[in-house]
Amino acid sequence: MKVEFLEPQSLQDAVAMAKAKGVGARFVAGGTDLVIQMRKTGVLPEAIINLQRLRALGEIKHDADGFSLGALVTHRQIESEDRFLGGLQALRESACVIGGHQVRNVATLGGNLCNASPAADMVPILLCFNADVTLVGSSGSRNIPLAAFIEGPRKTQRAHDEVMTDIRFPKPAGKFASAFLKGGRRRAMEISIVAMAGVVSMSAGGTMTDVRLAMGAAGPKAIRLAQAEKFLEGKVPSKAVLEEAGKLAAAAASPIDDVRASASFRRHLVGVYARRVIELGWNRISEAGNDRSAA
């Protein structure tokens, strides 16, 4: 089996090559998924298009509108990004629980999103930040909300000749905090059985506002927990309030039974982690000074 290896030096080249080679071509960035898939299935693509020369896609940028993460930004870059402290710290928390250093040093955010694993740990927090992804293809460029981009397990809106270039999200306004928690059998090297991310802001009156909550690994794709969010809006996180939010979150889960955990345990954990993520976020706001809350 002969596989062609293509090294585009520009985005345009990459797109053109993918279009020319058709569905038999595969993009590769960090390679941590593709190489395993090739070995396990024995099925090789006709061509591998290496995106790593597109260095511009490897940067984390910040402007008045918010953040832009290049699709080739690695998990290690995210977990060690100083601007992702304070209110954005859940980005770091989500990035640092994926594989070991060896994987995070090369595995890219774009790869993680395009693979669309239901348990991809970066997705929930990016959903909370209302992230968009940019795809560039032969017919131009388009922005899609991340929530719509991922359609289901291993399914996205990306056409085979489209390259994901970046992931953008606006910085939430005011005083806010974020948190991420995951469940797994070990403390490291775990594919989440439940992943939960949350962002919460504090209103002038000291209540929760602009609450955002998203879960992963508890359904075919990571989703925002709209009902729990709505319920929490304007409230203070009392024990009863958090309990109720947990119940609403658990009700929104549609988990499966697999070798890692049963559906019922996943649902239970969704309730627990939804509550804890909000609680943790709220404690973080309360502990942080006004100026330290956001990056």
Binding site: R185, R186, R187, A188, M189, R260
Partner: peptide, 28 residues
């Protein structure tokens, strides 16, 4: 005690790799 198990379903191993055969890491 806590994490490892080869899981069978009708004789088929459901976790035939180190992703889901969970030996303790240095963090555990």
């Amino acid at each position: 005690a806590l994490s490892e198990e080869i899981v069978y379903e009708n004789g088929i191993v459901r976790n035939p790799g180190l992703t889901d055969y969970k030996m303790p890491t240095a963090m555990d």
